[in-house]
Each structure stands twice: as structure tokens, then as C-alpha cells.
Computed example of a mutant assay.
Amino acid sequence: MADGMDRQEPMGEAPSAVAIEAHARGVIARLPAAFRAHLGDVILLVEEEADAETLAAVGLDHPLDLTGLYHGRPVGEKSAFDSGAMPDRIHLYRQAILAEWCETGVRLDDLVAHVTVHEIGHHFGLSDDDMQALEDAVAD
């Protein structure tokens, strides 16, 4: 991997938002073509943490409790009347991802892949089992 997340050293500089985004985009590139075909208009954003309004909307109090969020309507619920709506967005929250990485010891690249696929799963309205199968399909 040349995306800045190939070294899983216990000490060192935490990956930047750019490195996390590059890895998430690599995960998306490995999705089956049928899924990639429906992600062209979805915006991927890596932010430091969720803002207070976002946290309140999902019923959370602390920004480190939210690693990712999908904003939009699942593909199966879209209609022609959606024109003019904000584009669908996948938000990854760097600080929460890094905190979970430190707390769990899960490899950071695996964690970013998990969060990315989970949010993509919401875009498609997938069940948790379907999300797991999709995550297995993109595993390195």
C-alpha cells in the first residue's frame, strides 16, 4: 500500500485525513462493479470530527463516538422528485477512527475499510450481514 497507512507501528504520527481518504477510496475501488456504478455521485468527506448538530441528530454526545455517517436517501428509496436535493455524502471522522484504532487494536486500514463499507451499506440500504459480506469482498 502506498497510501500512507501501510505501516502499523504502535508509535508514530497518526495518519492524516488525506491518507485516510486515500485508503477509503481504495476500498471503494475494490468494490464489485455493480456497487461502484451507483456511487459516482456520492461525495466522500474525511473530517476531523462530527459537529454538535450532527451528533445531536444521531443521538450522541461525544464526537469520538461517531466514526462515520451517511447523509442521503438509500438507492432503493430515491425517486425522480429528488432533483435539487443535496448530493449523498459519506463522512468519515478521523479523530473517532483514530480513537477506536487505539482502543481496539484493530489494524487501522481494516478499521477504515469497515467504516467506509458500513456507510456505503447505508447508501444501498443493506443489512448488517450484507455489509459484512461486502466488507469481506474488498478485504486485502
Rank of each mutant, 00 (worst) to 15 (best):
V106K: 15
L98Y: 02
A113V: 05
S16M: 05
L39G: 08
E119Y: 04
D82E: 13
A99E: 13
G12C: 07
A19W: 00
K78W: 11
T116V: 08
V75E: 07
A29K: 08
D41L: 13
I97E: 00
S79W: 08
A52E: 15
R94A: 05
V117F: 04
H123W: 04
L98W: 04
V46Q: 01
A113T: 11
E9F: 13
E135T: 10
D136R: 14
G121S: 08
T104M: 03
A37K: 13
L108P: 00
G76Y: 13
P63L: 05
A34M: 09
P87H: 08
E21V: 08
A52T: 15
A57E: 11
D3M: 01
D51S: 09
E47K: 12
M131Q: 14
E49T: 15
R25H: 04
A22G: 11
E9H: 12
A17C: 14
P74W: 06
A14Y: 07
D128M: 12
A80Y: 09
G4K: 03
E77T: 13
E49Y: 07
R25C: 03
R89H: 07
R25F: 03
A22C: 09
D129F: 12
I28N: 04
L60C: 07
A113K: 01
H123Q: 08
A34Y: 14
Q132E: 11
H91D: 11
H71C: 12
A57P: 05
A2K: 11
K78Y: 07
G72T: 05
M11Y: 15
G68P: 02
C102W: 09
V138I: 02
A113G: 07
D82K: 10
Q8G: 10
V58W: 04
E21S: 06
A133T: 14
E53F: 10
R25A: 05
E100K: 03
I90W: 01
A24G: 07
R25T: 02
L45R: 11
D128P: 03
A99C: 13
D3C: 04
M86K: 11
G121Y: 02
R7T: 09
S79G: 15
E119G: 03
V58D: 06
L39F: 11
I90Q: 00
E9P: 01
A34F: 14
D129E: 12
S127Y: 10
Q95C: 10
P32T: 06
P74I: 05
A57K: 13
D65Y: 09
F35M: 08
G121T: 05
Q95G: 10
D61M: 10
Q95V: 12
H23D: 01
F124M: 04
